[in-house]
């Protein structure tokens, strides 16, 4: 058996593809995830995130390429992979007609954990996800957030090295989202565990992930740390400001400034500026107002977000894309 922990690479994806008829759902995707990393796949509906996860978790055979997960090839040694990974699929797969404890207990048995060890582990996990008081409640009676926490507990039953979470917070209210985020950060804090998660929330990727791959139409269009990704987008800081009275030459005065990339006059002495350097350009603008003895009625700086990154790399916004091209949702896509 290979020793994945030593190599430092938890997941190594090599030109993996999945074709459904004429559709390349995942098209020759390659990337590596380091041990202990939280790695995010960020993309709109239908980008191919779930398909990618399903291939990496041995649920769907790739139509091209392969991957090594926890040191084992997903095609040639799927069982070794399955023993080392925990999976929390996009659609909840816990049994609504079983209690929380039973759901975890039966999953434990599927990993060969039985007897007293199984009981201990079940109690431990219910405690860890804050469901101890619901141990004997039917899974069908849980709220969405609780159900998701149950799924996470179930995926951890065999203490896997690598955890896959497909859209762990979709459909949750803000409070539940935060509790899942805390759980995810906590999971990584435990030694050496690697997390691969998908999301279509920018803030989630930004907040949780060490590195983010932006996925669009089956391709990875950018991959880096959130900070580096944001830095790579030129002129993405947006500044909106209003003078009183207006600048003598209007937009032309602003365009003359070195940090300013482009200017749009919005009327009534209001302008929107895009710039490479948000705070630095703000300083220049304040100086400009002072030089012309004008009052600055308002100034707001909006720094680069992953939204801008997404827009930059794909040519369309995340939400626009989802609206303009709604993927036909399959039963459990």
């Amino acid at each position: 058996m290979a020793a994945p922990a030593q190599s430092g690479i938890a997941i190594d994806v090599r030109s993996i593809s999945k074709r459904f008829g004429a559709l390349e759902a995942v098209d020759q995707v390659s990337f590596m995830v380091k041990s202990g990393e939280i790695f995010g796949l960020l993309g709109p509906n239908g980008a191919g995130k779930s398909t990618l996860i399903r291939m990496l978790t041995t649920l769907v055979p790739p139509t091209g390429g392969t991957a090594t997960v926890a040191g084992h090839d997903i095609i040639h040694d799927p069982n070794a992979v399955r023993e080392r990974i925990g999976v929390i699929p996009q659609n909840m797969t816990s049994d609504p007609e079983l209690t929380c404890a039973e759901n975890i207990g039966i999953h434990a048995r599927l990993y060969g954990i039985t007897g007293a060890r199984r009981r201990e582990r079940t109690a431990e996990l219910l405690e860890a996800v804050g469901l101890s008081d619901r141990a004997n409640a039917m899974a069908s009676t849980l709220s969405g957030g609780m159900r998701r926490r149950l799924e996470i507990a179930r995926g951890l039953v065999h203490d896997p090295q690598i955890l896959f979470l497909d859209e762990p917070t979709t459909g949750l209210d803000p409070v539940s989202r935060v509790s899942v985020w805390e759980m995810v950060t906590h999971l990584r804090a435990q030694q050496g565990r690697t997390l691969l998660l998908t999301t279509h929330y920018m803030d989630e990727a930004d907040r949780l992930c060490d590195r983010v791959a932006i996925v669009d139409k089956g391709h990875i269009v950018a991959l880096d740390t959130p900070v580096a990704l944001k830095a790579s987008v030129p002129g993405a800081s947006r500044i909106e400001l209003q003078f009183d009275p207006d600048l003598p030459r209007g937009a032309a005065d602003l365009e003359a400034l070195p940090a300013v990339k482009s200017v749009r006059a919005l009327g009534s002495a209001t302008y929107r500026i895009s710039s490479d350097r948000g705070p630095a350009s703000a300083q220049e603008l304040i100086d400009l107002a002072r030089a012309h003895k004008l009052e600055l009625k308002s100034l707001s700086v909006e720094s680069t977000s992953l939204d801008d990154v997404f827009l930059h790399y794909t040519g369309h916004g995340l939400s626009e894309m989802a609206e303009a091209d709604p993927q036909p949702q399959r039963g459990r896509a």
Binding site: T57, T58, L59, N79, R82, E83, I85, V87, P89, N91, M92, T93, S94, D95, P96, H107, L110, Y111, G112, R154, G331, R332
Partner: peptide, 15 residues
């Protein structure tokens, strides 16, 4: 199968 329960079993090492 259609409720996805099988998906939950198939990610485990069950043969």
């Amino acid at each position: 199968k259609s409720r996805g329960l099988h998906e939950g079993y198939m990610v485990t090492p069950i043969t």
